[in-house]
């Protein structure tokens, strides 16, 4: 219960920042997705279980602000967190390439799953245009952001490891 009490205000702040600031800035047609970036970061360098809980707290808030049916983002965000977690257990997990790849795949996967759910719920979506003009540019943009964010973290952790006896 305690983590949820912490995550809900954090989720409100994160979603507000995403909608008020990041979704106002379009770079090459894409948007930075601080929600997926944070969840992946939390999964890789924090706790998988808590990241799942954070995803469950964020998703309905994100849905309400985005005019989506409540609950639509739960499965996509849980999938991204699980993907990041499972990948980190493989040989790719410890490398810098993994966070970048998982962000790229995560943005794509989350959007595809959300679109699939919405289509199943009867929404008419221009899925091809959305994919081509918004989702793919966003995936590249976030992968680039992942490089900028994770590089110092990886360098710092490697530095710490070399200092250990």
């Amino acid at each position: 219960m305690l983590p949820l009490l912490i995550f809900i205000p954090l989720a409100l702040i994160l979603v507000a920042f995403q909608s008020a600031v990041l979704n106002q800035i379009t770079l090459a047609g894409g948007h930075l997705d601080i929600i997926i970036l944070s969840l992946v970061l939390f999964t890789l360098y924090g706790s998988y279980e808590l990241a799942l809980l954070a995803a469950v707290a964020i998703a309905p808030i994100m849905d309400a602000v985005s005019g989506l049916p409540l609950g639509v983002s739960v499965i996509p965000l849980l999938t991204v967190v699980t993907l990041a977690h499972l990948g980190s257990k493989t040989i790719f997990g410890a490398r810098l390439g993994w966070p970048i790849l998982v962000i790229f795949l995560g943005v794509l996967l989350a959007a595809l799953l959300t679109m699939l759910e919405l289509i199943l719920l009867g929404w008419e979506l221009p899925w091809y245009d959305l994919l081509l003009r918004v989702v793919v540019p966003s995936a590249f943009l976030n992968a680039l952001a992942a490089l900028v964010i994770y590089l110092p973290i990886v360098l710092f952790s490697e530095h710490q490891e070399t200092r250990l006896p």
């Binding site: 909608s19 979704n23 106002q24 602000v65 989506l68 943005v107 959007a111 918004v134």
Partner: peptide
């Protein structure tokens, strides 16, 4: 508009 667009990539209410 001040509060923002949407938190999702797919909709812009």
């Amino acid at each position: 508009r001040p509060i923002g667009d949407s938190a999702s990539l797919l909709t812009h209410p």
